[in-house]
Design a protein around this nucleic acid. Structure first.
Lengths: 243, 243
DNA sequence: GCATATTTGTCCGTATGTATA
DNA sequence: CTATACATACGGACAAATATG
């Protein structure tokens, strides 16, 4: 398919390790099946907002564009459906998911248990592991100064992903990743992304300082209120969009 | 396919609501696709222990037995792979997942945050909603008196599923369901299921009484220790099996 | 190490069933 | 009610990778 180009066209006897590493760095993951690469493309289009909620993904149309068979495409659909980005209506096809207010409430409640639970499970975090999160905060601050609120949102979400990752639990990471991906569905198409993201830049730094100081319980309590406020803002934003 | 038989053979103009309800009750859900029904069959075989971990699921073999095409079967594989019950090795096929000790530790840590988080989020649970859980406990006690430890394990897991369901969060339910399904992979093939399940029959009742009394925080704390003990037992059991 | 057989990965064409105009 | 469009499911085919001798 066109995305990976002629990477594995000619039958090299052995792909050296550095090759797959480079491919991973550039984002052209080659170790995966065609279906997963198709899913990667669609996931990006969705999370970047090119495919807004309620968009129908026609099998015929996409097989033409992506140059893959319907079977392969359907496998990609399955992947994304189970990530919550698509919904599958029997005999009607797949659509980009739209989140209603109940979904948002549910999403934030689970975020609260997952993220705060991750914080509370911490013991003696190596300060070196917080460097990435300080980078995330710095990226948010820089983007905020530029007024690039979409980028602020992106690095805020990366902050939360890295926060959960401190707990070193693969399954927790996976669940958190899915929640954050779903959340992006709600962020796109909001009238004022500034109100949605700006307040949390400073709060992220405060939170991170608490973690750096080993005050995990305090951090968890702070995060609880943080998420409640965030949900309130988000609900207000989507409500104003629908009127 | 043969599993659902001739449920919706003749084209009735309108299925009355009670009909689909009955179908759901009996477990012959007809609204699903063939792939999902195939996945249901395989899921049952796996969770019941008929297909032990490391078993390879041959496409050719299963298409013969289940009378479905390879494409349909592969869609079912995809579903179960994303539930964590199968692993998919590129160009080698799918295998029933085997959990190592790290998996078990990870699983229980996430269980702890999810289940205890669900308990802590409760406020004023309607006592009527606890009836199902009291039934679960009664079923465990009855099976324990019979010495049917596998059934004890089954109703214990149902207890935990219903416990999480009290929080009324669809996503939390889904995550908890997947965790419990994965857990069953580890339970089967254990030498002494009694040690694994018996101690928790009484503890389930204690826990439930705390919930009935509105002592959610106390229940959550109790559950933490409960799960730690359970993990210790489980690790000992799988270790003794591998020697 | 090599050649062969087996199995999976991918794609295509088609027939059937379902939803919507 | 009919017609159209589309998803569902099937079977066959070939390529690619793996396993086996």
């Amino acid at each position: 398919m066109q995305v990976v180009g002629g990477a594995a066209e000619e039958g090299r006897d052995e792909d050296p390790d550095w090759l797959s590493n480079v491919a991973a760095d550039v984002g052209l993951i080659d170790r995966s099946s065609t279906a997963e690469r198709v899913a990667d493309v669609l996931r990006r289009r969705i999370t970047e907002g090119d495919l807004p909620p309620r968009t129908r993904l026609s099998e015929e149309q996409l097989t033409d564009v992506l140059h893959v068979s319907r079977n392969t495409l359907r496998e990609a659909f399955r992947l994304l459906t189970h990530e919550g980005l698509l919904i599958h209506v029997l005999h009607r096809g797949v659509f980009v998911r739209e989140l209603d207010e109940a979904d948002l409430g549910d999403l934030y409640r689970l975020r609260q248990t997952i993220e705060c639970g991750a914080l509370r499970s911490l013991v003696d975090v190596d300060p070196a592991r917080l460097r990435g999160m300080y980078d995330d905060v710095a990226a948010s601050e820089s983007a905020a100064r530029r007024g690039d609120w979409v980028s602020v949102g992106t690095s805020n979400m990366r902050f939360h992903r890295d926060l959960v990752a401190l707990a070193d639990s693969p399954r927790t990471n996976e669940v958190a990743g899915r929640l954050l991906a779903e959340l992006r569905l709600a962020f796109h198409g909001v009238a004022s992304p500034r109100r949605l993201h700006e307040p949390y830049v400073a709060r992220n730094r405060e939170l991170l300082d608490l973690v750096a100081g080993g005050e995990y319980e305090k951090a968890a309590e702070g995060l609880e209120g943080y998420l409640e406020d965030s949900l309130t803002e988000l609900l207000a934003a989507v409500r104003s969009r629908h009127t």
